[in-house]
Amino acid sequence: MSTQAPPRVAPEPAPEPPPAPAALAATPLGGDAQAFLDHLRLQRRLAERTLAMYHDALVRLEAFAVAQSVVLTEVRAHHVRRWAAQLHGQGLGPRSIAIHLAAWRGLYRWLGREGRILANPVDGLRPPKAARPLPKALPVDQAVALAEVHDDDSDPVLDARDHAIVELLYGCGLRVAELLGLDVQASAAARGWLDLAAGDAQVLGKGSKRRIVPVGQVAVRAVQAWLAVRGELAHVEEPALFVSRRGTRLTDGQLRRRLAQRARAAGLPQAVHPHMLRHSFASHLLQSSGDLRAVQELLGHAQISSTQVYTRLDFQHLAKIYDATHPRAKRKSGQKL
């Protein structure tokens, strides 16, 4: 008796790799998606980095809809679930997928308010869970070294600017967007400004929420030193407190490159990014004061849970001290636990 071989099943095609970030950034959006992004920029005043991530997410949403031959206003929950799975298959991590779903959910919430749809197809869909890494903070001595270093290879004017930037990031715990949004003078159009006489900064944080942050005397003196030479770079009509060589408002990328250069000049053994100084501000303040609510207010966190992550850093700090100093924590080399 002959046996017939089972039919061969063609393997499912591997998911296409996600488009390169440059290709996403260069792709224009359709009418509804672009109108939503303009709303976020003009009405919600989201940070440029957030807008860029939302733009990329909306580009992918439109590409999925075109491939499925469905218009955005007719997308349903089963479409979104399938597309989220495809994002995972393309290699995007849980955090990236969460950002995509947040952008898509925001678009459909906005379309609902405009009366264009009856139900939000993204509601109830949760992104895959991801381990929440601890924020990276510098040790106190490294943070102080970064603040106090003067780069001999740098232009003195740029060195004065960078010194003031580090003092504000580490001394006030500002977000990058908050710092870059500072103007020299207070005005109705300004996102933020410094009152050096009062020793405080008014900044526009996430969700367009304003808050007042104290500015220490060391940071005040650093800013005053920068203001004394700022005119050598800034255009006459430029309102920004921190400007580039070209005299225009400093960008996020320019700030990151200058901070990395300053970290090398300070001899720091690790790469330093601007948000690391905000983490260092919070961690060091919590270690010294133990006042979680005060740190929450200074950081501008809407939820105390966002601030509580720094208590884990504080515990790690205490654990290291215990391991290094307590007689019962010390073990001989090779001793088993």
Rank of each mutant, 00 (worst) to 15 (best):
Thr3Ala: 14
Gln4Tyr: 13
Val9Leu: 14
Pro11Gln: 12
Pro13Met: 08
Pro19Val: 02
Pro21Leu: 07
Leu24His: 00
Ala26Gln: 11
Thr27Ile: 06
Leu29Gln: 03
Gly31Val: 14
Ala33Tyr: 03
His39Val: 11
Arg45Tyr: 10
Ala47Leu: 06
Ala47Asp: 14
Arg49Phe: 04
Thr50Ala: 02
Tyr54Phe: 09
Asp56Met: 04
Leu61Asp: 09
Phe64Glu: 15
Val66Lys: 15
Ala67Asp: 15
Ala67Thr: 13
Thr73Leu: 06
Glu74Val: 11
Val75Leu: 13
Val80Thr: 07
Arg81Leu: 13
Arg81Ile: 12
Ala84Asn: 07
Leu92Asp: 09
Ala98Trp: 08
Ile99Phe: 00
Arg105Ser: 15
Gly106Tyr: 01
Gly106Lys: 04
Leu107Thr: 03
Gly112Thr: 00
Val122Phe: 08
Gly124Cys: 09
Leu125Ile: 15
Lys129Ser: 13
Lys129Ala: 12
Ala130Thr: 11
Arg132Gly: 03
Leu138Asp: 05
Gln142Asn: 05
Ala143Thr: 05
Val149His: 00
Leu158Gly: 03
Arg161Asn: 06
Tyr170Val: 07
Glu178Gly: 03
Leu180Phe: 04
Ala188Tyr: 08
Ala189Arg: 14
Gly192Pro: 05
Trp193Val: 01
Ala197Phe: 12
Gly199Arg: 03
Asp200Glu: 14
Arg210Gln: 13
Val213Leu: 00
Pro214Arg: 03
Gly216Arg: 08
Val218Ser: 12
Leu227Arg: 01
Arg230Ser: 01
Glu232Leu: 13
Glu238Ala: 03
Leu241Met: 11
Leu250Lys: 00
Gly253Met: 14
Arg258Gly: 09
Leu259Ile: 07
Arg264Glu: 15
Arg264Phe: 05
Ala266Trp: 06
Leu268Asp: 12
Met276Phe: 04
His279Ile: 02
Arg293Glu: 03
Val295Asn: 01
Leu299His: 05
Gly300Gln: 00
His301Ala: 00
Ile304Asp: 02
Ala329Ile: 10
Lys332Pro: 10
Gln335Trp: 12
